[in-house]
């Protein structure tokens, strides 16, 4: 009932804000374009259609976190900074209702944007190749949704723990840089390697380096995509030497990405919620 009160008000606000519609339209157009420019290499249409989803996953990996962060970073901080929370809590709502209502609202909004992207890309793919690779399409969509939600959860958590706009922006930019940009180029593993091997002189430990990379949801997303790709599309995500690949520990398997995502979905939210419960809201 009370979560409903916060949720419905927030959804109405988000629906009326032009900015998010703009982002949704842009992303949908990008997804359409990616599906359209997917270049065949003379493979059968089904294989090419599957490849189109692989390409889309590449786009999702980099851009969807931005959308998720932008859609969520001010969710609670904004109410605190503007004084809107004074009304939310002047009525029979608890802090839990505010937290849960905001979270559900932003999960729904970002979910819808990801859905738009996949619907558009699927329409183009079907039109172009005449086949629908249902397994890959649904699989990549599901993994992308979880990936997007991990960033929503993280941003709502930060938002619940920060009182000012500037702090919220710092947290948003910082998390994107650290979790996505850093993993596109320079990886966590290189930092760990520097400390572990070069500085401490403990010798090479490729599995440990890979595990450090696995902390990033960006890496976890690629590993999770392997779960839904046909064998031919699977990728080696970690930069492991040959012999280290032979004896892959359980914490480096593709399946373990689900554990990584579960942690990203639960831990920040739990910490943010506890912080929010104890905060002075004024």
């Amino acid at each position: 009932m009370s979560i409903d009160s916060v949720l419905s008000k927030d959804l109405t606000s988000v629906r009326r804000s032009g900015a998010l519609w703009g982002v949704a339209v842009c992303l949908t157009m990008l997804a359409t374009m990616v599906a359209y420019v997917n270049i065949g290499r003379g493979a059968p249409p089904l294989r090419e259609a599957q490849d189109a989803y692989g390409l889309l996953a590449g786009l999702v990996g980099v851009l969807v976190p931005i959308v998720a962060i932008v859609a969520s970073y001010m969710s609670i901080t904004g109410e605190r900074a503007s004084g809107g929370i004074k009304f939310l809590l002047a009525f029979p709502n608890t802090r839990r209702d505010v937290f849960a209502g905001k979270l559900l609202s932003r999960l729904a909004v970002v979910g819808v944007i990801v859905l738009f992207m996949f619907v558009a890309a699927t329409a183009i793919t079907v039109a172009k190749y005449g086949v629908l690779p249902v397994g890959v399409a649904v699989g990549v969509f599901a993994v992308s949704l979880v990936y997007a939600w991990a960033f929503v959860a993280l941003s709502v958590a930060f938002s619940s723990a920060t009182a000012s706009r500037s702090q919220a922006i710092a947290a948003a930019v910082g998390s994107y840089f650290l979790l996505v940009i850093l993993n596109l180029t320079f990886r966590f593993s290189q930092v760990v390697r520097l400390v572990y091997d070069t500085i401490l002189g403990l010798g090479e430990n490729p599995h440990l380096y890979a595990a450090a990379d696995y902390v990033s949801p960006y890496i976890a997303y690629q590993k999770a995509a392997n779960l839904v790709y046909p064998a031919a599309m699977e990728r080696q995500v970690f930069r492991l030497p040959e012999e280290a690949r032979e004896t892959l520990p359980v914490y480096l398997t593709d399946e373990f990405s689900l554990v990584v995502f579960a942690a990203w979905l639960v831990v920040p939210l739990a910490l943010g919620y506890l912080r929010f419960q104890r905060s002075d809201l004024q």
Binding site: R16, G78, E79, G84, K86, F87, L89, A90
Partner: peptide
């Protein structure tokens, strides 16, 4: 807090009408 808020009417200080909602809404 929620039980109390059910029976209290509040005109707070430092509030903000920042949602794109009309007065009626």
């Amino acid at each position: 807090p929620a039980k109390i808020r059910e029976r209290v009417g509040v005109l707070p200080e430092g509030y903000g009408f920042d949602d794109p909602l009309t007065g009626r809404e």
